[in-house]
Structures are given as structure tokens and as C-alpha cells.
């Protein structure tokens, strides 16, 4: 989907006194059909649009509408809200959206997820790799890390967030405890980047290097740096981190130990 639009709906929406468009329409769910939201697809598209538009209220109300119509809650998240977040991620990469916008999109997504979560029956989707994520020790700048987390979460990855100022050993200990096979480390300061090297070194020392994929990112970090410290991957931004996690998951699954995550 190149662009999320609800043209049909917008064309028919009555003009509301408050100047608002579709959120107002949802005050009248019985009329939803008339509003152009009659089908599942159009409701999901409107949910996606609410996320892209950073509109928490609409996201929640459209999600309530999905629940009322007994749509599958997981599908509503996956085909509605998540699509919106993907679009937001693309806009972020294209420099249409910046950090404030992306954070507000995530809030809108969360507002919808809150509504839908209690109604999720079961997750059919194959489990994606678990990921531990944190900002390396000495560094308390976690905006980038938080963006990566929310993009990974919205893409369906289970993320164990270690927070900021995390010691290299902790990344490994917690990954082992949680059965996570991907370690993502962020740093904003040149002064703390060396801690990323320590994670790789400690993995080697403990004979665990093959068990984990290590990905690094953050302001001063580059592909060259990732190569130098022997990390498996580098991500230049939060949206790219999702593709990276998907790739690393596939690589892990392909190495014959892909089951490990589930068994630990």
C-alpha cells in the first residue's frame, strides 16, 4: 500500500460542527455503513490513517468499532494499526516525519491496541525472534532506542527493553535468561561506543558468539564501526531496524538452532 487513504469515506462524511471528520462519524456506529466504513478493509484503512494522523481518539474509537463488529482483534491490529505504523515509519525514513511525529503515531497506535488487546483470541503468527534492546553503559540518551523499540513492537517483535546505561554483561545475561537471540545496542555518544565492542568480546569469551546476533545503532555509530567491532549488523534508523530484525531472525532460523529461542 503506497499511501493510506479513505477517499470514499471523506467524500461522503457529513461536515461536523467541530470541523472534525471521521472521528465524529464514529459517534454514530449504526450509520457506519453510510460513512463508507462498512467493510472491514475500509475500517482497517481508517485505523491506519488514524495512526498516521497521530490521532489517538480516532484510533481508539475505530478500534472500539472493530470490537463492536466482532472483527478479529489481532487482524485489526495487524491490518489496521500496524499498517499505519509502517506508513509512519516510511514517512520517518523519507524525512516527512521526525521524532515527535513518530512518537505521536506510536501513541495513537497504543490507544488502539489498548482497546483491542483484551479481545485477541490467539496469535497465529509464527513467533518472531525475541530481542533484547538497550542503551550501552555510560549513555542515558534513549530517544533512538525507544524509537527502535516502538517500531519493533509494532512490527510484532517481542522486545525486552533493558533501558539506558546498561552494562555489556547485562545485555548477554538478560538475553540468555529471556531466550532472546538478537541483541540490539544503541549509543548516542562517541564516548560510550566502546561498550558495544565489549558485548561482542564477552560473547566470544563465554563461547556464545554463535548463539546471538548483535546489531548496533545510534548517532555516531556506522557500518564501519559495526564491522570493526565484529557486530552482525548496523541500523541507521528505527524503521530500518525492523527490516534488520526480520533479516536476523531468518538468519537465525536458517542456522539450525532457530528452535533454541523457544526452548530456553
Amino acid at each position: 500500500m503506497a499511501k493510506i487513504e479513505c477517499l470514499h469515506y471523506e467524500a461522503e462524511a457529513p461536515v461536523s460542527p467541530g470541523g472534525q471528520d471521521y472521528p465524529r462519524a464514529l459517534d454514530l456506529p449504526p450509520d457506519a455503513g453510510r460513512m463508507g466504513l462498512e467493510g472491514k478493509e475500509s475500517l482497517f484503512q481508517a485505523m491506519a490513517k488514524a495512526v498516521v494522523d497521530m490521532d489517538e481518539d480516532s484510533s481508539a474509537r475505530l478500534s472500539e468499532e472493530a470490537v463492536r463488529r466482532r472483527y478479529d482483534a489481532f487482524e485489526a491490529i495487524d491490518q489496521g494499526l500496524t499498517k499505519g505504523m509502517e506508513q509512519a515509519g516510511r514517512l520517518f525514513e523519507e524525512e516527512e516525519y521526525f521524532v515527535p511525529e513518530l512518537l505521536l503515531c506510536a501513541d495513537a497506535m497504543d490507544a488502539g491496541v489498548e482497546v483491542l488487546k483484551p479481545h485477541i483470541k490467539k496469535v497465529d503468527e509464527e513467533a518472531k525472534c525475541r530481542i533484547v534492546l538497550g542503551v550501552i553503559s555510560g549513555d542515558t540518551h534513549d530517544i533512538g532506542k525507544n524509537l527502535v523499540k516502538l517500531m519493533l513492537n509494532s512490527a510484532g517483535f517481542e522486545v525486552i527493553d533493558l533501558g539506558r546505561d546498561v552494562d555489556p554483561e547485562i545485555f548477554i545475561d538478560r538475553a540468555q535468561e529471556a531466550g532472546a537471540r538478537i541483541i540490539m545496542i544503541s549509543s548516542l555518544m562517541t564516548t560510550t561506543m566502546e561498550g558495544m565492542l565489549d558485548v561482542v568480546k564477552i560473547l566470544k569469551k563465554r563461547g556464545l558468539r554463535d548463539q546471538f546476533k548483535v546489531a548496533v545503532g545510534g548517532g555516531p555509530v556506522s557500518q564501519a564501526f559495526a564491522d570493526r567491532i565484529g557486530a552482525d549488523a548496523y541500523s541507521p534508523n528505527a524503521n530500518h531496524a525492523v527490516r534488520l530484525a526480520a533479516r536476523l531472525s531468518v538468519e537465525l532460523a536458517g542456522d539450525g538452532t532457530g528452535e533454541l529461542a523457544g526452548n530456553l
Partner: peptide, 11 residues
């Protein structure tokens, strides 16, 4: 809190 702050620059 920087995450809240960045959002509030818009909101």
C-alpha cells in the same frame, strides 16, 4: 522527560 517533551513540542 525527553520522550514526553518531544511530543509536547507538537501537542
Amino acid at each position: 522527560d525527553p520522550m514526553a517533551f518531544l511530543k509536547e513540542l507538537r501537542k
